[in-house]
Simulated scan of single mutants.
Amino acid sequence: MTDTSDILVVFDCDGTLVDSAHNVLACMRLAFEDAGLPAPTDLAIRRSIGLNPDAAVRSLAAEPLDDPILEQIVSGYKQAFFHRRLQADYHEPLFDGVREVLDHFAGRNIAMAMATGKSLRGVNIVIEKHSLHGYFGSLQTPDHNPGKPHPQMLEKAMLAAGTLPERTFMIGDTSFDMMLAKNAGCRGIGVTWGYHDDSDLLESGAEKLINRFEDLVGIIEAD
């Protein structure tokens, strides 16, 4: 059996572990509209998922934003998400196969972490809602890191796990995830069920693409 004790698998959250697009779309549209600006298109918002909120809002604005307007939209987005999570019909499901693969890796003592543009509060809500306690050795979020594709999230995850870049895999659905992996000297594996096209993932450095979460097991354990 392949020795996996020195491997670290780092997961993005939105679009990789959980399907949150419908919530992100609604909250971002509302934040722009409340600031008196036209709402971005759904396609544009989907392509911004994975960035930290400040960077996402800047990328979606039709014109450069003054700091007060930027702060208003970002704050409005966060507040909209907070209130949305309180609704009885709030839904942010795990993608198929996620729990089974996490269980498998945990059983093989493969270290895992999360690196995401989602806030730490949002990540903890996902963990609580889906009972994902104990899987991730570290949670890397924009609360204490520069946003993707700056390499710091992966650098801190590797430091916490005691692993090397060549034995670290970044699993994500966006070009930002693949660029993060490249910038940190790690290996990027793109998932095809998320928010960026397959071609975007490959062009930004994905080593491989997977169509099912279960396909990740063979890639990691064959290394």
Score class of each variant (00 low, 15 high):
residue 147 G to W: 05
residue 152 Q to L: 14
residue 32 F to C: 08
residue 152 Q to I: 07
residue 184 A to P: 12
residue 120 L to C: 05
residue 68 P to F: 05
residue 98 V to C: 05
residue 121 R to P: 00
residue 164 L to M: 15
residue 124 N to E: 09
residue 211 N to D: 14
residue 167 R to V: 00
residue 144 H to R: 14
residue 140 Q to C: 13
residue 162 G to H: 13
residue 93 P to S: 07
residue 178 M to V: 00
residue 97 G to L: 09
residue 74 V to Q: 02
residue 186 C to M: 05
residue 195 Y to E: 02
residue 10 V to D: 01
residue 79 Q to C: 01
residue 197 D to S: 15
residue 87 Q to K: 12
residue 42 D to S: 11
residue 71 E to I: 07
residue 208 K to P: 00
residue 49 I to E: 01
residue 82 F to H: 04
residue 125 I to L: 11
residue 162 G to M: 12
residue 34 D to Y: 04
residue 177 D to I: 02
residue 41 T to Q: 02
residue 184 A to S: 13
residue 30 L to K: 12
residue 134 G to H: 04
residue 32 F to Q: 03
residue 121 R to V: 14
residue 135 Y to V: 10
residue 86 L to R: 15
residue 222 A to E: 15
residue 127 I to L: 15
residue 19 D to K: 08
residue 80 A to V: 06
residue 72 Q to H: 04
residue 3 D to Y: 01
residue 190 G to P: 04
residue 132 L to G: 09
residue 18 V to P: 05
residue 210 I to C: 12
residue 29 R to T: 00
residue 156 K to N: 12
residue 199 S to P: 00
residue 136 F to R: 01
residue 8 L to Y: 12
residue 215 D to Q: 15
residue 64 P to A: 05
residue 129 K to N: 13
residue 168 T to Y: 13
residue 82 F to Y: 09
residue 39 A to V: 01
residue 40 P to C: 05
residue 138 S to G: 10
residue 218 G to D: 11
residue 179 M to A: 08
residue 49 I to N: 01
residue 219 I to K: 02
residue 181 A to I: 09
residue 69 I to H: 06
residue 117 G to H: 03
residue 90 Y to N: 09
residue 3 D to G: 10
residue 30 L to A: 10
residue 60 L to P: 11
residue 33 E to W: 04
residue 15 G to M: 10
residue 99 R to I: 02
residue 103 D to I: 01
residue 158 M to F: 11
residue 11 F to Y: 15
residue 13 C to P: 07
residue 155 E to H: 06
residue 29 R to A: 03
residue 178 M to G: 04
residue 214 E to W: 10
residue 132 L to E: 08
residue 207 E to Y: 07
residue 162 G to F: 13
residue 131 S to E: 11
residue 119 S to R: 03
residue 199 S to V: 14
residue 74 V to K: 03
residue 89 D to C: 04
residue 221 E to Q: 11
residue 136 F to D: 01
residue 162 G to V: 15
residue 145 N to H: 15
residue 60 L to T: 08
residue 5 S to L: 01
residue 59 S to E: 09
residue 134 G to M: 09
residue 214 E to C: 05
residue 221 E to N: 09
residue 159 L to Y: 12
residue 207 E to K: 13
residue 211 N to G: 14
residue 56 A to F: 06
residue 108 R to N: 14
residue 107 G to V: 11
residue 97 G to N: 06
residue 58 R to G: 01
residue 101 V to D: 10
residue 81 F to E: 06
residue 209 L to K: 00
residue 93 P to H: 08
residue 103 D to T: 02
residue 73 I to F: 08
residue 155 E to I: 11
residue 58 R to P: 02
residue 69 I to Y: 07
residue 81 F to C: 00
residue 222 A to W: 05
residue 131 S to A: 15
residue 189 I to C: 06
residue 207 E to C: 08
residue 143 D to T: 13
residue 39 A to Y: 03
residue 137 G to Q: 12
residue 105 F to E: 08
residue 37 L to T: 00
residue 141 T to C: 09
residue 63 E to K: 02
residue 185 G to M: 06
residue 1 M to C: 03
residue 148 K to F: 14
residue 71 E to Q: 12
residue 143 D to Q: 07
residue 191 V to W: 09
residue 200 D to I: 00
residue 13 C to T: 05
residue 45 I to V: 15
residue 5 S to A: 11
residue 105 F to S: 08
residue 134 G to T: 06
residue 152 Q to M: 13
